[in-house]
């Protein structure tokens, strides 16, 4: 018996549900770009090596080029188009703009989605390969430039805008700390 090679799939993207009939081979990246006209998510290498296609799936940064769309059914997908809130850019977007965290801009949506997740991962206390001692009693690592570079290493920028990207992520992190303090006060 030959299994069916397509399915009707409901994708939940930026808070909106889309029902699509999809060939199982369709990646989330191709579903976003070719079927839903959400072309903010970029196709770079299409083999999981460049990070240009980074989106958030249930809040976790994910490579849309290696994610089969059918397997992402009913999960909350956030793309660069869903980052701004009520006409206000996300603080990470604002920092990239103000500090020139880009040149050609092709990798930028992936960089921003990735950076948004980096801030959340750091806030949750996750260590990285740059963390001197991962044992929990050493506490969460400070988000130094070295930590940012390591955590963002899955996003390549062929223009080499890395210096400004690191600055932008650091500024967004500092702002997040500030607003956390304000909320606490």
């Amino acid at each position: 018996m030959h299994p069916s090679t397509s399915s009707t799939v409901t994708l939940n993207i930026n808070g909106e549900k889309h029902q699509l009939s999809l060939d199982h081979r369709t990646t989330l990246l191709d579903a976003l770009r070719e079927r839903l006209d959400l072309t903010g998510t970029k196709k770079g290498c299409d083999q999981g090596q460049c990070g240009a296609c980074t989106v958030l799936v249930d809040g976790r940064r994910t490579l849309a080029c290696l994610q089969l769309a059918v397997a992402a059914e009913d999960q909350e997908i956030t793309t660069i188009e869903g980052m701004a809130r009520g006409g206000e850019l996300h603080p990470v977007q604002q920092a990239f703009l103000e500090l020139d965290g880009l040149q050609c801009g092709y990798c930028t949506p992936g960089q921003i989605c990735s950076a948004v997740a980096v801030l959340e991962e750091h806030a949750a206390g996750w260590p990285s390969a740059a963390t001197e001692d991962v044992r929990p009693e050493h506490g969460p690592p400070e988000l130094t430039d070295e930590e940012i570079r390591e955590r963002m290493s899955g996003n390549l920028c062929r223009c080499g805008a890395y210096v400004s990207i690191v600055r932008a992520v650091a500024r967004a992190a500092a702002q997040q700390d500030e607003s956390a303090k304000e909320e606490a006060a």
Binding site: R61, T62, P127, S128
Partner: peptide, 29 residues
Amino acid sequence: LAAHPEVRRRCPALSQAVLAGASGQLRNM
């Protein structure tokens, strides 16, 4: 796996090994 406090406490090498592989995006998947 890499972020789990008990893994980091009882076997830091395992957490470090996982963190040394791939990228943040790939480790999430």
